[in-house]
Design a protein around this nucleic acid. Sequence first.
DNA 1: TCTGGGGTCCTAGGACCC
DNA 2: TCTGGGGTCCTAGGACCC
Length: 391
Amino acid sequence: MASVIFFHVDIDAFFASVEQLDNPSLVGRPVIVGARPGGRGVVSTCSYEARAFGVRSAMPIQEAFRLCPGGAFLPVRMQRYLEKSAEVFGVFSHYCPEPQALSIDEAFLDMSGTERLFGPPAQAARSLKADVRTASGLTISVGIGPNRFLAKLASARSKPDGLLEVAPGGEESFLDALPLASLWGAGDKTQERLRELNIRDMASLRSIERETLWRLMGRGCGEFLYLACRGIDPGFFTAAPQSRSVSCERTFERDINDEDILESVLLELCQEAMRSLHAKGQLSDCLAVKLRYGDFSTVRIQEKQARPLSSVDEAFRLASRLFRVKWVPSRPLRLLGVSMSVQDPGAGTQGELFDDQVARREVDRAVFDMEKRGRGGMRKARSIRRRGEGP
DNA sequence: TCTGGGGTCCTAGGACCC
DNA sequence: TCTGGGGTCCTAGGACCC
């Protein structure tokens, strides 16, 4: 029987690499893609030249600017990255019929039983890297392992432009060379708890009995750690990913407590979320509003509906009502968000709309179609009118 | 340092029903 | 006047990922 082999492939410093590809004068320079310096926001991706200055993904953009004032600070051009991502995924699909995308720049490839076609795993990986480079001009890192979890850790360990194979039987020795912080799925809070318990490395984590870990870390987290430190896949991404919700949120440049402005933002967020649902042909029967205050404390309120939300107006009425339940007018808001969960496909007839809902949905559809054809004035006009009307 | 925007999954408590 | 046990659904919050 052919052995199970997974590749985890990850494009190196993706957004920054695309910027360098499109503008050769940026090659060799620190490139930082993300929010506008001086504003509220974070680094999305940065080139390896910027990392040498200490800049990292998710770092506040102001701190990145302080560390690397001479860097090229560029806005995110998502459309362009989607194009390049499609090129790279096109190459992946020559090696594996169904690459499993984790995000815009990484995927798992199930390479089990492909040895006759592509040779041993490391040879296949070298050829994949060369093909991606030829097709897109980008470099990738490839991790090879007997399961997805180890393949993911291996590619991270090999970056940039790397290739690392964890062969069956070599799981524990590979893991023992890694810091606990590199365990995918154990973030800051879990790392902090492990430090409190004086668990400092993979081997000492492995020496703890299963039930003890459950007790110390909670059942879910304890079981995850028990499996992960043995190189057993804890089961992330074994199921096909499916869309469960869409969300839209806005962080303001300055904290806001003007009710009219907040209302008009809420309307825009509802429009954007409904447009996403429309584009995917999905319905939502549960809407949530998220509020973040100036001190970063965050509250959420959601309400499930007996029938799916049919129109922007209906979504906005609900969002507005929920917003008022939570909003404290004396506390300015830093962020406002709306999310809508996609209706369970098993919900059956609950997806049906009343006749009047169908009519309102058709109006929205016409507006969204018109926007898609480049006549986007309607969305704005509605928001402005709403703002002018007052509360 | 001062913390985006898009997501997924898990947990715990309360309501409700039998 | 004192009130079980189990199941399901809903809600809010939190951890984590890219």
